[in-house]
Amino acid sequence: MNPQSSHPVRGFCLLALVAAVLVLWVQPGAAQEAGGEILGAITGALSDAPAGSDERATLSGRIIQMIALMTVLALAPGLLVVMTSFTRFVIVFSMLRSALGLNQTPPNMVLSSMALFMTFFVMQPVFEDAWEDGVQPLMNNAITEEQAMSRIADPFKRFMLANTREKDIALFADFAARGEGGQPEAGPVTAESTGWRILVPAFMISEMRRAFSIGFLIYLPFIAIDLIIASILMSAGMMMLPPVLVSLPFKVIFFVLIDGWYMLAGSLMEGYLPLAGG
């Protein structure tokens, strides 16, 4: 097949998709009518190509890839939470703010943004493996969509298994086997033997357990400062003065003097980088 013969068809499909986005953005009321016209145009382009031809197969594959990409982008926020280190980071940062006694400082946007970029930093080896093994070969038409999905998912599975307790995996595997009327499989836990139905919730509760354990250790020194300030105020007879009001600047300066953000960020990333890189 001549590579240049499919260029007009591909360009027409791309132009149709761009037109659909513009119609949805500018005039939502005409979305149904425009969608019908675009669907008819794409169907006509497919029907013009001979049945079973390489051009028709390539065009169909590109449309499927576009639909899959749009679906992944729509689910990206949820996938970011349940399949990466974002959960642990944002919980620890929120508990740190509560331990300091600061209600809105740093604001939620700052904490979420910091957790997000730290997540990208930690997950970079996983993203690179997924891109090089799955996305790039798919764009070069070297593998099929099914092979690409498996190769893209494997790095995330390895990362999640490395950070999930076997106890948590066994819990969901046992309940899944009960629901299917069977027994959980014996043997070592591997990425191939563990399905997403079991791995994702097990990874989530493992991450939340570690986040709350770190948060507990963060709370201890700040509770000690609160107790010391409260004891001093009571011994001085100033029981009407809220201890939290006096202890707040001491907790903030204590956290600054020990370079708390450096220590906390380094400790959180240290627990991931060897596993993510391996």
Rank of each mutant, 00 (worst) to 15 (best):
A173S: 12
V135W: 05
F89K: 09
F120W: 06
D168R: 02
L111K: 06
P106R: 11
S98N: 12
G187K: 12
A115T: 11
D174R: 15
T194V: 10
F117A: 08
A170P: 01
A186Y: 00
G179Y: 01
N103C: 02
S150Y: 03
L100C: 04
P107Q: 09
G187P: 11
V90G: 00
F203K: 03
R209A: 09
Q136K: 14
T144N: 05
R197F: 06
T194D: 02
P155W: 05
A173H: 07
I205V: 15
F156R: 07
F172H: 03
N163F: 01
T105A: 11
G195Q: 07
T190R: 13
P184T: 11
V110C: 03
A211P: 04
I214Y: 09
L116T: 13
A176E: 13
M204E: 02
V92H: 03
F212I: 15
S206G: 04
E207G: 03
F156T: 08
G195T: 15
L217R: 09
A177P: 06
R210D: 09
P201N: 05
K157I: 08
P155Q: 09
L96A: 10
K167C: 04
I198Q: 09
R210G: 07
I169E: 03
E132Y: 00
S150V: 13
P106H: 08
T87M: 12
S150R: 12
D174G: 11
T164D: 08
V110N: 02
M109Q: 12
T164E: 05
M160A: 08
S98V: 14
G187Q: 09
M204G: 04
V122F: 01
I214H: 00
F93K: 08
A176V: 10
P201G: 00
M149G: 11
M208W: 00
A162E: 09
F216E: 01
N163W: 00
T87V: 10
A148C: 12
W196K: 02
V122I: 15
S98E: 13
M118E: 09
N103E: 12
F117Y: 15
E180S: 13
D129N: 11
R165T: 15
E166K: 14
A202Q: 08
N163L: 13
L199S: 01
E166A: 15
T194Y: 00
P155S: 10
G101C: 09
M149E: 03
Q147K: 12
P201R: 01
P125L: 13
L116G: 04
V122E: 05
D154A: 15
N163A: 08
P106W: 06
F121Y: 15
S98M: 13
A153P: 00
E145M: 12
F120N: 03
E185C: 03
Q104Y: 04
I91E: 01
E185T: 14
P125S: 11
E180P: 01
F121L: 15
M160D: 06
L217C: 07
P155F: 04
F117G: 08
D168A: 14
E207L: 06
R97V: 10
D174M: 12
N103F: 03
